[in-house]
Design a protein around this nucleic acid. Structure first.
Lengths: 169, 169
DNA sequence: AGAAAATATATGACTTGTCACGTATAATTT
DNA sequence: AAATTATACGTGACAAGTCATATATTTTCT
């Protein structure tokens, strides 16, 4: 084997710059930062986990619903809720009752204690959203969301389709 | 306790709509979808993990570098690489040698086998980026990246600052 | 009515990512 | 030169998320 090639600082810098404009690199990083920031905010508001916060918020806003409904609104996998909810029930934040009409379903309902936990975290999280709105105008947010809509569509297209695609450009 | 409130389909729909325009909900969902799509593409190109692919790509583009350099370019935590690299070395994709000038560092270098694995996955992943460029113009990508830059800045500001902020609006 | 298909939930195994902390080495200060 | 501080890496513990598979219940089809 040949002797070690040296580290080339210029090539690294160039590579870093390339990756800076790669959506598939920036998206994970932005998400990770968002998760960290979310957790830090929540530490100031009763130390809920992110999943717990989202769930309390949704239940507060929309009333009782099934696990699937929660997963749907949160755009996440039901298994995440399936695992988190028993703990939330044990903490007294929610009740879980089997559906009367459809016995497959679990109806999740906010308890008073859950509403209290929500009330404690809510103003902190409202501040977060308010702070975001000082960085981005409503119009910008709308464009941003529009991009995410289109990106979502793209990301959910079957890989086979995309691979077969004639790359015209 | 009062009897169970019924599920209110209209409220659920409204809540779903609200969350649809919440950046903090859409970002995780978009990232998760991106990760799934990335993995599916990689299954067509030698079954690398996402971390492995990123690492082979960076090493191919920029030559040998330290673990910290890799983490830096990928905008991720060094511990992720610290765990992934020994496995990549065992698979024969990279070598890890202690830095001569700075003995704290590990210099990661692509092997021939690593270059082969890269060459196998690269055209598939290039297709992915090409497909994305058919959905978004270069100008749109630039705006998108600009949003992500600004979002990153926001997400990295200390929570205390944001909480103390007078929310003027 | 009975069989087949679809749906709701639970659970094990896995990946990506963070943080905190420990250890070794290098750089800086006194 | 010695002591302090900073940096690079490794590792344990955790969170958020996916997927596949199993089970129970509904719905649909014959």
């Amino acid at each position: 084997m040949s002797e070690d090639a040296p580290i080339d600082a210029k090539r690294l810098q160039k590579r870093r710059a390339q990756e800076d404009s790669n959506i598939f690199v920036r998206l994970p990083a932005a998400y990770a930062a968002s998760r960290v920031q979310g957790r830090r905010f929540l530490q100031h508001g009763g130390d809920l986990s992110i999943v717990e916060w989202r769930t309390l918020w949704d239940l507060h806003e929309a009333g009782p619903m099934t696990i699937r409904d929660l997963a749907n609104i949160q755009r996440t996998d039901h298994s995440l809720l399936s695992r988190a909810l028993p703990q939330m029930r044990d903490k007294g934040y929610v009740t879980m009752t089997r559906g009367l009409e459809d016995a497959r379903q679990i109806i999740v309902t906010l308890t008073e204690k859950g509403a209290d936990a929500y009330a404690k975290a809510a103003p902190i999280m409202a501040r977060r959203r308010a702070a975001l709105r000082e960085e981005f105008t409503d119009a910008e947010i709308a464009v941003f969301i529009g991009f995410l809509d289109r990106l979502d569509d793209f990301l959910r297209r079957p890989v086979e389709d995309l691979l077969q695609m004639e790359t015209v450009k």
